[in-house]
Amino acid sequence: MILGDLTPAQLKQRLAADGLSLRTGPVVTRVQSTLDAVVQGLGIHYAAFPVESDEAFADFHVQVCRPAGLRSWLRPQVVFRFDGEEPFAPLPGPQSFPMLEWGLNWCIYTYCHQFVTLHSAVLERDGRALLMPAPSGSGKSTLCAGLAFRGWRLLSDELTVLDPVAGDIVPVPRPISLKNRSIEVIRAFAPQSVFSPAVPDTIKGLVAHARPPQDAVDKARLRAQPRWIVLPRFAAGEPARLTPLPRAEVFMQLVENTFNYSIHGPAAFAALARLLERCDCYSFSYGDLDEAVAVFDRLAAAHEPVR
């Protein structure tokens, strides 16, 4: 069963009652909410995602709801609950769906220590994964969305999940989070993309989520082999340019972007080294998304597919 099999009324009823067990890649999350924006957001973005039975094991139990008290009537806020705890401060009411998305990311990088998790977008072409670790504001999400809507398979716009034993990348495809000008850039670049309403005044500015492409959801169990690590940087007016980077430099970037590096310790060191040894490493600056996508298409075309 997929979420889209439910009518809007059934979805609302299930979320308000015992919740819905949503599978996203290797993770099952039981989501509860009575908030319309959450119901609507899940309906838009997760229609193609599998729903597990009520009896199935859920890795995480989360709620997005209004806090108790007068505040919920005066200036409504929302809270994210994880196993009954509230790990974050409340946010303004309109931010309920982004809060669910941020909370789901938090669940994975805080608890999924069977994996090494990196703050990095990751896409796949012909079985090979392209990792893009980069800080916020670098143009990483825009580039990720651009590639995802032009033939690269989205594994995640935010989290690279590395299996430290097998050495391959585990997909966790979910909605693509876009900010500020990127929203209009991607709407124009990929008119077929479906967005939830943009939410202003978040900690990241104006935020909107784009529905992940169908292909990404259909192949969510298909892992990919690491092949490229690219540190992107948007630079208005500059031509798209890939520049090789020394591996030791990239290694330290990976360490900085690994959420659970200190938990895995030497195992993470070994896993990241192994990852790096399978990849070509580049910095990438770009000022135009069409040009950027063409560069990556050429990069992929120059290599044999993984059999």
Binding site: P246, R247, A248, E249, F251, M252, G265, P266, F269, A270, A273, L276, E277
Partner: peptide, 13 residues
């Protein structure tokens, strides 16, 4: 310690 080096530059844990 753990050691890896590439192109004449090492990283260590």
């Amino acid at each position: 310690y753990e050691w890896r080096d590439w192109d004449g530059q090492a990283v260590v844990f």
